[in-house]
Design a protein around this nucleic acid. Structure first.
Lengths: 211, 211
DNA sequence: TTTTTTAAATTAACGGTGTTAATTATATTT
DNA sequence: AAATATAATTAACACCGTTAATTTAAAAAA
């Protein structure tokens, strides 16, 4: 007796509809401006209905964060066909940086904001397939580089972490407005050149010395 | 005629009182929890009075951000007595990282949050003595390293930027909760060791190869 | 067919936020 | 004592995330 309970598929459909609305808003106006109320209005639901499908706003942030990792992962996946580890490492860096620049909102969600991580922390078990794939690809690439004679005497994981930290550092300083600030005051960059590209070129020179 | 206008000093006194309250709150409960209303309550002023002394919340964020740079700058200043450029570079890295870990809130304000930068962007001219000093110290150190034979054929500024980006990348990933997430899943770190210290050790190995 | 039941969705409300406009309090000078 | 200029205040706007209480709607039972 009673009203028909929504089955798994129907629930997933609503979840997706909410997520689409959230994504559109968030890609158009950024995370800050993406409120539960606005998401609800977009799909003609009452704000509180959202809470029947997502635990809280961090839950939505985390779900979008996973989408971001899927996109980045797909871009990395293409590189698995590059044989040379070192060439692949360089390409990964370039892809990572252009992903950050072209998907600034996703990047913030994936690597800068605390919120999605807080959601994970609250969960008992953490599934993280998407992120695992991306970092795993970097780890494999570093170990391939090692087989090619690079990074002798260094711990693979630490090298991977440092490489990630470097490109993330560049991207996050750029996206958060800190880089342009320093650049205009302290770095004379040729008009037609991009600070990140300049820096990345030097990074490649540094990596080449690792052989 | 009329009520006595507050002179420069009196205005500065109130500004400082507000800033002290803001700092206390922000060091105790973080930036998020530091609202204009709470700051005002702390010093028994009405919330709107704050706006007579600071343009908006970003103004306060920016003023605290400058304080942070003063602290970091003082720590860097001590290192100017280290003769060897390379030794100084390593020490700067260690100091930067421990500053980030021990002053997480200041670090967020200085290098992660957009707000203080947004305030600067709104101003017509940008004074940035504090930050200039810190980055200038790094630039000088890199050029000293170069004189010692490191970073041959590389642009000084780009090297400095990359070094900064790397340590910032490590710190920000750590502070924002992204590092622990990856670490538990992908990096087996010895119980008694810190991920950042581990990574930094490898960074030093990498820098040593730059000679 | 009508009543009961139950899940889904809604409205109302709480306790906050940054910020601005309008008003009041206060001290000084005429 | 009255007028005035400035400092500080109150009231208000337009939001926010989230929870509790309520209503709507559809399926099952009578």
């Amino acid at each position: 007796m009673g009203r028909k309970e929504k089955d798994k598929q129907e629930i997933e459909d609503v979840r997706l509809k909410i997520l689409e609305a959230a994504k559109n808003l968030f890609l158009k106006e950024g995370y800050e401006a993406t409120s539960i109320r606005k998401i609800a209005a977009e799909i003609k639901l009452s704000p509180t209905t959202i809470y029947l499908y997502y635990k809280d706003k961090n839950d939505i942030a985390y779900t979008l964060h996973k989408e971001g990792f899927k996109i980045l992962g797909q871009q990395f996946a293409v590189l698995q066909h590059v044989e040379s580890g070192f060439e692949r490492l360089k390409a990964m860096g370039k892809i990572y940086i252009s992903f950050a620049i072209q998907n600034t909102d996703f990047y913030q969600l994936m690597f800068i904001m605390k919120e999605p991580m807080e959601f994970i922390a609250d969960k008992d078990f953490c599934e993280w397939e998407e992120g695992e794939f991306a970092f795993g690809a970097l780890q494999k690439t570093v170990s391939d580089c090692k087989a090619e004679g690079y990074f002798k005497g260094m711990n693979d994981n630490n090298v991977a972490l440092n490489v990630w930290a470097l490109v993330h550092g560049l991207c996050s300083l750029k996206l958060q407005g800190h880089l342009d600030h320093v650049a205009s005051a302290h770095l004379h960059v040729p008009e037609d050149r991009n600070i990140l590209d300049e820096a990345f070129e030097t990074l490649v020179l540094m990596l080449e010395k690792m052989k």
